[in-house]
Amino acid sequence: MLLEVCVDSLASARAAIAGGADRLELCSALLAGGLTPYTELLRQIRHESDVAVRCLIRPRAGDFLYMPEEIEMMCAQITELRSAGANGFVIGCLNPDGTLDCTATARLAKAANSAGLTLHRAIDVSADPLQTYRDAAALGIDTVLTSGAAASCVQGVDVLCSLLAERDRTNGPEVLIGAGVNAGVIRQLSAALPGARAYHMSGKVELESRMVFRREGVPMGLPGLDEWHIQQTDTASVRAARQVLDDLA
């Protein structure tokens, strides 16, 4: 039973590893849904641990319809992160009609040079998740991260069930279940999705900023974002999920 934890800082990586994560998805800017991580952050993690790390390759927030220059940049990011110790990459591009852009995604896969590959949650906003899964399989992608085309994995059970059946029928990519995952959700889904064997979580808690002086009314990003609390992976949350998976195994 695989437990992948999504992290965007060294502190979160340490917490995830301490909690028993099998693999990290490394990114930056989780509040924006996750963007390509800094190479130096990967090097910091590599200095401390040989845990498996797959790096998200996403150059900006928003949709997954990319310009040619963005695809070029993503290929360069893959090359750089591969040289810094990434074991794999989390990728995906869509066409305007909601189908998987197989040409662009294949370019990213080629740049990864035989590293592990996850199709990210572009599948959840694609026109036909089952067909997108099949297209990903044809490209040699070994894992698909998905909520079942819903806001949370609990809401996406029906689609997840179909994807797991397709996995078993074709020996296709692993179905990595994400969005709202915690120990309780894993336990809840184990009955509805007995074939599930891979989960993705962030396990975040809000930590109070250590800043004493706080000037209010000057947001650093979108108005309403809170600069005085930091989101960080919680070791206890990861450990609890790990325990449930071990019990199920």
Score class of each variant (00 low, 15 high):
residue 188 Q to M: 11
residue 28 S to Q: 06
residue 193 L to E: 05
residue 183 A to Q: 08
residue 90 V to M: 08
residue 77 Q to A: 13
residue 20 G to E: 07
residue 213 F to W: 10
residue 143 T to C: 14
residue 124 D to I: 01
residue 224 G to H: 01
residue 126 S to I: 09
residue 192 A to P: 10
residue 109 A to T: 12
residue 98 G to H: 04
residue 236 A to K: 09
residue 159 V to H: 01
residue 149 A to K: 11
residue 173 P to C: 00
residue 91 I to G: 02
residue 151 A to R: 14
residue 133 Y to C: 08
residue 119 L to M: 10
residue 100 L to H: 05
residue 53 V to I: 15
residue 53 V to G: 01
residue 125 V to Y: 00
residue 34 G to S: 04
residue 121 R to C: 02
residue 145 L to T: 00
residue 89 F to M: 03
residue 116 G to C: 05
residue 114 S to R: 14
residue 107 R to E: 13
residue 116 G to M: 09
residue 141 I to S: 04
residue 216 E to L: 14
residue 23 R to Y: 02
residue 61 A to P: 04
residue 213 F to Y: 13
residue 191 A to C: 12
residue 212 V to K: 14
residue 204 K to I: 10
residue 18 A to T: 09
residue 242 R to P: 00
residue 44 Q to D: 12
residue 7 V to S: 07
residue 193 L to W: 06
residue 38 Y to D: 14
residue 201 M to C: 06
residue 249 A to H: 13
residue 67 M to A: 15
residue 75 C to N: 13
residue 127 A to T: 13
residue 86 A to V: 06
residue 108 L to G: 10
residue 75 C to E: 14
residue 201 M to A: 13
residue 95 N to A: 12
residue 25 E to T: 00
residue 20 G to T: 03
residue 138 A to V: 03
residue 33 G to R: 00
residue 59 P to S: 09
residue 93 C to F: 01
residue 28 S to C: 08
residue 32 A to V: 05
residue 204 K to Q: 11
residue 126 S to M: 09
residue 115 A to E: 04
residue 184 G to T: 11
residue 63 D to R: 07
residue 11 A to M: 08
residue 6 C to I: 13
residue 231 Q to E: 13
residue 168 D to K: 15
residue 222 L to N: 06
residue 218 V to Y: 10
residue 19 G to D: 06
residue 209 S to M: 02
residue 94 L to Q: 02
residue 110 K to D: 11
residue 229 H to R: 15
residue 50 D to G: 11
residue 211 M to V: 11
residue 212 V to C: 11
residue 76 A to N: 11
residue 143 T to Y: 08
residue 70 E to P: 05
residue 16 A to D: 00
residue 24 L to M: 02
residue 163 L to W: 01
residue 135 D to I: 01
residue 31 L to N: 11
residue 158 D to R: 13
residue 129 P to Y: 00
residue 217 G to M: 03
residue 4 E to G: 02
residue 215 R to D: 12
residue 136 A to V: 05
residue 26 L to Y: 07
residue 131 Q to A: 15
residue 5 V to K: 01
residue 13 A to Y: 00
residue 134 R to I: 13
residue 53 V to F: 00
residue 185 V to L: 06
